[in-house]
Simulated assay, not measured.
Amino acid sequence: MTTDEDTDHEDLLERLLRHLLSGGNLDELCEEAGLPVLLESTGRPVNVREVVADGDAGVLALNRGVVFRLSGGSEVQLSIVTSRRPDSPVQERPPRTSG
């Protein structure tokens, strides 16, 4: 199946980021990647409270992106910018099911 070239890469990456970080276990992801763990002033690990698309967070942007709301009140925005399109249409393969 061919995807809409205006949204395929941006949409997939936005959904992937939301999936990866919406579990809230930022400390586990950091440890798994060999990165330092951020700690709140209480000594507890900083966690992701919410991951939302820019538009759902009320952020006006020309690009796609996500907003990470962290414990302790921090909010981080990540924009997804396509700097070059593929030369030919991109195809999609449905996700593999386990079992």
Rank of each mutant, 00 (worst) to 15 (best):
T3P: 01
D6N: 15
H9C: 13
D11V: 10
L12G: 04
E14Y: 01
E14Q: 13
G24C: 10
G24Y: 02
N25F: 01
N25L: 04
L26K: 04
D27A: 15
D27V: 13
E28V: 15
E28H: 14
L29P: 01
L29C: 05
A33I: 07
A33S: 12
L35Q: 11
V37M: 04
T42Y: 05
T42L: 08
N47F: 02
V48E: 02
V48L: 05
V48R: 00
R49Q: 15
R49L: 15
R49P: 06
R49M: 14
D56E: 15
D56Y: 09
G58Q: 03
V59I: 15
A61V: 05
A61P: 01
L62V: 10
N63L: 06
G65A: 09
V66M: 00
V66A: 00
V67Y: 00
F68T: 01
R69L: 13
L70H: 04
S71E: 12
G73P: 04
S74I: 09
S74Q: 13
S74R: 13
E75P: 02
V76H: 01
S83G: 10
R84D: 14
R85K: 09
R85Y: 07
P86W: 07
S88Q: 08
S88G: 08
V90A: 10
R93N: 10
P95I: 12
R96K: 13
R96H: 13
S98M: 12
G99Q: 10
G99Y: 07
G99V: 11
